[in-house]
Design a protein around this nucleic acid. Structure first.
Lengths: 113, 113
DNA sequence: CTGATAGTTAAGTATATGCTTAACTATCAG
DNA sequence: CTGATAGTTAAGCATATACTTAACTATCAG
């Protein structure tokens, strides 16, 4: 698997670009077509297609074409997975701080308690 | 500001690399030196330094050097900020689904309720 | 002072990313 | 059928990313 990219690699990579976050912002309001996604963005349509491709390959977005319109929508599972990864590390760090605090408290000389 | 990168660009970019996420994993357990961070990683020390630089510039990690040892630790605020961005979009999307569900419920013919 | 440890800097390279314009296809409305 | 709309593909280019090795500096232990 020389070219394998872990799901979180792709998800965070996708979220690292302001244009793609703007697209996610729009999609958070509800499904949208490619041109709706493109309208506020200062770039060509093909560029938006590339960003959409990145979002889809990351699993953050799915789309289907009906007639000539491709409708895109958020895939919340991948969003949750990314959120959970961050949350777990932050919580681990905080528990760590708490343990340190407790340790300092316990080893404090009596008169400082 | 031709070279400005929004905080979230940098944070998500930093989290997009498996080596950097491994470093964050280690740091979630508590502070660590550069070589402790490097030990499990299949790359040279200079490469680890570059990853550390990316993490620091993103605000996810801070470090200070005492003697010849540089000690690195997680900066939880930036982690929270990234988490919040994702969480907000996911929740917005879910509220959206709920509204759609309610709408379908309300407009359903009587006999299907 | 001397060697080992911890980190840093520099230079070079391969690949990936983020666009562009031009040309094209497919669908729909009248 | 015809023109407008929505999207797609291809080719090309500039810059950024993720490393490498070699050489160097700073600190500490004895």
């Amino acid at each position: 698997m020389l070219n394998y990219q872990a799901p979180l690699d792709l998800a965070f990579q996708a979220l690292a670009d302001p244009a793609r976050r703007a697209m996610m912002d729009r999609l958070a309001q509800g499904p949208a077509s490619v041109s709706e996604l493109a309208k506020p963005l200062p770039m060509s349509l093909p560029a938006v297609m590339l960003h959409l491709k990145v979002l889809e390959e990351s699993g953050l977005v799915k789309s289907e074409k009906v007639g000539r319109v491709r409708t895109c929508r958020i895939e919340p599972q991948m969003l949750s997975q990314a959120e959970r990864w961050i949350s777990e590390r932050r919580q681990m760090w905080e528990r760590n701080l708490d343990r340190l605090g407790a340790f300092l408290e316990e080893t404090k000389p009596e008169h400082e308690k």
